[in-house]
Design a protein around this nucleic acid. Structure first.
Length: 506
RNA sequence: GCCCCGUUCGUCUAUCGGUUAGGACACAAGAUUUUCAUUCUUGUAAGAGGGGUUCGACUCCCCUACGGGGUACCA
């Protein structure tokens, strides 16, 4: 068996959405598990759709979720370069060999002529005629033109491409690791363009050549490629590589949460959730929010994505990367498309937040505050984590919930003020503030008996007293344990907030 | 239109001919909690339809329906 080498091959035509992340993840897991190599190859053969910054975005996104390639445009490797635009010369040689072998040909049809052919041949039964064995002899190509005619076209600068000469009446069988045997009849296949008129290869050409040259053993990619795999097999065959051709695994697609079709970048805005790993802010065009900025942990995103279309066959749902490497198998990838479920994604995130190490949580919370130009001491961040670890779904909630620790509320809950607060409690609470300011140590153990005593002497119930304290400390009657809240702000601050709160409640 | 792939609770899925069709999210109820949340317990909820094959089909085969992908000098 040749060594396992897999590649993730994104095209820098925009931000990579989570479907791409999932494809990269499955490739990565397979490589790690098999002791193989995970490669990133940038497929930038479309000059017209090239988006500046997209490649960097993709690479940084992979980095954020922890999928670092061993070989790629940034780390190099023995089979580089790993950007197809930098491999441009390679492809034309191979394409010419195919022409010499009679398996491909030059074509000189303009876009207008192609359109005219489709118009001319279209019938109600066949609305999309192809450039294929049926139509190619009526077109301008090296099969129909004389050498003189071709020379004339070349000197006149007529655009020239190389097309694959797909035979008639043959079968192409593919063994897909996920779907099993899939068969295509070659008369259904068109004469795909291999080399474009700008000298760049198409996806099909570059893909086959590079997978071969980079010794790729398994091609794990989205289902949208299944149909064109027949063309790829033909290429391997004509180059004489069919015996050592990589194995294929075509992944099910991620579908919209509701309605029809696959998940698209617009769905994020439409349904109110991210579809990109990180914020995507191109120089022109729309901006999109990412999972990272929404407050997801990369581990949670990975765990959510891996379960969208794969399962271990057991009831276990929570996996870290190491466990996934152990448990993963291509055979357990599901065949049908999976709907994106944002609720489930949030559930995973809440789980990972709860299980954060305190030290990690502290720095994440400090980062959240920094985004609002505020700082919290690590002691304060630790207190915030204690109070909210089980109540937070998205990281930014640590800021909105925990802000009271560093900033006194400037208003009190109006509902509480009008419906629950009794003015006759005023003097008692003022008294409590004085007691509080000289309480030491300022812990639940010392506070609790004192509060019990206070409630008893003033005839207050827990359900009246504790919400009142919470309102004075944080502005709202609901929230975490009051003792933790008080401890987080300290004795003197607690006393002053009660005094201030009483003014606002009056 | 044609080609290819698919179809189990609302959603993600388990089951690889014999199960009370299991788990998770969501939802509902109850318990715990000073409140909210967490946590725990319980509950509602599924094999697209029709034919076969078989002693026996969710599972295998065929047809239909539906969904997805492809049908570009885009990937």
């Amino acid at each position: 068996m040749s060594p396992v080498r897999v590649r993730f091959a994104p095209s820098p035509t925009g931000a990579l959405h989570i479907g791409g992340i999932r494809t990269a993840l499955y490739n990565y897991l397979f490589a790690r598990q098999q002791g193989g190599t995970f490669i990133v190859r940038v497929e930038d053969t479309d000059q017209a759709r090239f988006v500046p910054g997209a490649e960097n975005y993709i690479l940084r996104s992979l980095e954020w979720v922890g999928l670092i390639p061993e070989e790629g445009p940034e780390q190099g490797g023995p089979y580089g370069p790993y950007r197809q635009s930098e491999r441009k010369e390679i492809y034309m040689d191979y394409a010419r060999k195919l022409v010499e072998a009679g398996r491909a040909y030059y074509a000189f049809d303009t876009p207008e002529e192609l359109e005219a052919m489709r118009q001319r041949l279209a019938t109600p039964e066949n609305p999309m005629p192809r450039y294929d064995f049926l139509s190619r002899m009526g077109m301008k190509n090296s099969l129909t033109l004389t050498a003189e005619e071709m020379a004339a076209m070349r000197s006149n600068g007529v655009p020239e491409v190389i097309r694959l000469k797909v035979p008639e009446g043959e079968k192409v069988k593919i063994t897909d690791l996920i779907r099993g045997e899939v068969e295509f009849a070659t008369q259904e296949l068109d004469d795909k363009v291999l080399m474009k008129s700008d000298g760049m290869p198409t996806y099909h050409m570059a893909n086959v050549i590079d997978d071969r040259l980079m010794r790729i053993s398994h091609v794990i990619r989205g289902e949208e490629w299944l149909s064109s795999t027949a063309h790829h097999v033909l290429l391997y065959r004509y180059f004489g590589w069919e015996e050592e051709m990589p194995q294929f695994a075509h992944l099910p697609l991620i579908l919209k949460p509701e309605g029809n079709g696959k998940l698209s970048k617009r769905d994020g805005a439409k349904f109110g959730f991210p579809v990109f790993p990180m914020d995507w802010k191109p120089e022109e065009g729309e901006h999109f929010e990412g999972f990272r900025e929404t407050g997801f942990l990369p581990e949670a995103l990975i765990n959510f994505l891996v379960m969208l279309g794969w399962n271990p066959g057991t009831d276990q749902e929570i996996f870290n990367l190491e466990e996934l490497i152990q448990a993963f198998s291509i055979g357990k990838i599901v065949k049908s498309g999976a709907r994106f479920d944002y609720q489930k994604a949030k559930w995973f995130n809440a789980h990972y937040i709860q299980n954060l190490k305190p030290s990690e949580a502290v720095s994440l919370i400090q980062e959240e505050f920094l985004k609002h130009n505020r700082s919290v001491l690590s002691k304060q961040a630790a207190d915030i984590f204690d109070m909210y670890r089980e109540r937070v779904t998205l990281l930014p909630e640590f800021y909105s919930s925990g802000l009271f620790v560093v900033q006194a509320p400037d208003a009190v809950d109006p509902d509480f003020r009008s419906k629950k607060w009794k003015r006759e409690w005023n003097a008692a609470f003022l008294d409590l503030a004085d007691q509080l300011s000289c309480t030491d140590p300022f812990e639940k153990e010392s506070l609790e008996p004192m509060f019990k005593n206070f409630m008893q002497t003033h005839g207050l119930k827990m359900g009246e007293f504790l919400p009142a304290i919470r309102v004075m400390v944080s502005g709202t009657p609901m929230g975490p344990d009051v003792y933790l809240m008080l401890k987080a702000i300290g004795a003197s601050e607690a006393a002053s907030r009660i005094r201030r709160g009483l003014e606002m409640l009056a």
